[in-house]
């Protein structure tokens, strides 16, 4: 077998990976442009688009007024008009101002028009808590969006996915929403110099294990991996960690294959438990692997509270490595 030539690997932040993805998309496809609040001169609320205005000019890096509904709707219109817009919404809570456009237009137009029009729009937004931003900047509504037929929902949890999901999303003929967890922007990770597009279809097994499947995504992936390390070291429990990557459509096959082997599942979701994504995943495991289970499916979710400001309260509200460890001990029958 010939020796594989590997591209050099460098360490980059999630933010830089996203920026590289934008730069590549803007270079490759003249139909691509970015618009949103403060994406241009300010450089992006989370500095993802810093420098892109200077590089690509104001036609393609467009600062908008604070009109979420209209600039998201304009993204839909521009997509219908032959462009490939990337619309950045500053943060997930603000996207509720654009919910009408996303749900009533982006998600419906293809079906409502009998397949005459597609909406190749990409919407990006920061989601999640952990930075003491309180109850109007830090919720996890991706589960709501994942409820909607017509949308594709993705959550890059790694540097490779931050680099690779955008281009694939832009090539998708239907609307894709990319949820970037706000605690990940500064995360560093290795990235091959030739890293490029990745699929938006499959969940990824980020850690292989025999005893229990931790099913998670986005900002909770790191916590789940940390919990898995602790469980291996302290309890001799070998946890498998699945990064869903795509929240709609869910890669049920990967979840079920893992659970059938490990016979136990713990779902870690920063959304609330009631009516949330974790409930959907749990139901699918019940529907597809009930007789393989050795214990009821457990969930680690955010406490049913608007995200509080104070650090100790916010920490207590969110899934943490320690609470994941406890939940795993529970399903293993090893209560602390």
């Amino acid at each position: 077998m010939a020796t594989e030539v590997r591209a050099p690997v460098r360490t980059v932040t999630y933010r830089e990976a996203l920026r590289d993805a934008h730069r590549e998309a803007l270079q490759r496809d003249p139909r691509v442009f970015l618009m949103g609040e403060d994406v241009g001169r300010y450089g992006g609320s989370y500095a993802v688009s810093k420098g892109l205005l200077e590089e690509f000019g104001p036609d393609r890096i467009r600062d908008t007024p604070l009109s979420e509904s209209t600039f998201v709707g304009a993204g839909i219109g521009a997509a219908l008009g032959g462009m490939r817009p990337i619309v950045e919404v500053m943060t997930v809570n603000f996207s509720l101002l654009a919910l009408d456009q996303i749900v009533n237009n982006a998600a419906t137009i293809r079906h409502m028009s009998g397949g005459q029009f597609s909406v190749p729009l990409v919407i990006r937004m920061a989601t999640g808590a952990g930075k003491q931003l309180a109850a109007q900047h830090a919720h996890s509504f991706e589960g709501w969006y994942a409820h909607i037929p017509g949308l594709r929902i993705v959550a890059p949890a790694t540097v490779e996915d931050a680099r690779g999901m955008l281009w694939t999303a832009l090539e998708d003929p239907d609307p894709v929403i990319i949820f970037e967890h706000q605690t990940l922007y500064n995360m560093e990770g290795p990235l091959a110099a030739d890293a490029g597009a990745v699929d938006l279809d499959r969940a990824a097994v980020r850690r292989q294990g025999r005893d229990v499947s931790l099913v998670t995504y986005g900002g909770s992936l790191g916590k789940a991996l940390q919990a898995a390390d602790q469980l291996a070291a302290g309890d001799g429990i070998d946890a498998e960690v699945i990064d869903l990557r795509t929240l709609r459509p869910l890669d049920t096959a990967t979840i079920l294959a893992s659970v059938r082997r490990t016979r136990r599942a713990v779902i870690v979701d920063e959304g609330w438990r009631s009516g949330g994504l974790s409930a959907e995943i749990s139901a699918r495991i019940m529907e597809g692997a009930f007789y393989d289970l050795d214990a009821p499916v457990a969930r680690v979710c955010t406490a049913e509270v608007p995200i509080p400001y104070a650090k100790h309260l916010e920490d207590a509200a969110l899934p943490q490595a320690a609470t994941i460890v406890d939940a795993v001990r529970g399903v293993m029958g090893q209560h602390a």
Binding site: G77, G82, M83
Partner: peptide, 18 residues
């Protein structure tokens, strides 16, 4: 959706301009 078409019109016009 009353008013819901107006943002789409803005976007279609933006696509033409670009």
């Amino acid at each position: 959706i009353v008013g819901g078409g107006l943002p789409l019109a803005v976007g279609l016009a933006l696509a033409d301009t670009l």
